[in-house]
Design a protein around this nucleic acid. Sequence first.
DNA 1: AGTGCGACCTGATCGC
DNA 2: TGCGATCAGGTCGCAC
Length: 275
Amino acid sequence: MPELPEVETIVRGLRRRIRGKVISGIRILFPGIIEAVSPLQADTLIDAHIEDIERRGKIILMYLTGGRILLVHLGMTGKLIFISSDRPLEKHTHLILELGPRKAVHLRYVDIRRFGRVLLMERSSAYRYIEQKKLGSEPLVIDEKSFTDLLVKRRGSIKALLLSQSLVCGIGNIYTDEILYRAHIHPEREAAGLSLPERTELYHSMVAVLTEAIRKKGSTISDYLDPEGNSGDFQNHHRVYARQGRPCNGCGTVIAKKTVAGRGTHFCPCCQPLE
DNA sequence: AGTGCGACCTGATCGC
DNA sequence: TGCGATCAGGTCGCAC
């Protein structure tokens, strides 16, 4: 589930809760979820301190002492839960970092569908790993001209492009639909066929939607919670996502749903004409 | 450089 | 009550 606003909310929560803490134990309940990239072993995490937490697109980077990085992809249903160590384990807990000198608290990785991954790597390997993914710019960092210039050089539908992570990174299915709605652009429009005013409106919609979603601490669709157990609020502000069959807030037309770029896609046929 | 698929997983929901 | 089909926030690899 987690897209940029959820991952950003998670990173902020982790900074508040685990920055500076020592890893005093590690328990791996499902070995397939964690990959310790050679020559590192998972047990070398013990006694490392968590120096800082950052995000690149949807990837979480936890900087550890000793020049190592714990890199976390949450996939569709991954969660990082900061919780007292005496609390019962949630179903589908795959990895536990025991924190503090007395192991009083846990950071637990829980992932129902197991699409997520945790990788322990040297810093240089982590950067190389991210480099290989060819991620685009951060959508809240790229400037308007760079965005509109890059967009026009790309082929294919605008929906597929926003989902691809290669123009900008961090946007997934929910936010793609919300951004295109607010820019009045049909998801099947050719990226290269958008006019300059349309590309400019798309840029500002992207910034506005992501900024507002971060302020509302992301969207909770079925089970997303931040590390402190809080749900997001932005789902209450979705204008098209999961609103098929209901009236558009702008014009009253029934919101449509169809598959575009292989994903369920929600849009207003009136406000987002295909032309 | 594109597209469309299936694969990877579990669980919720819906129609029968 | 059960059963199968379908769908779900993501990404990868493959054939075309």
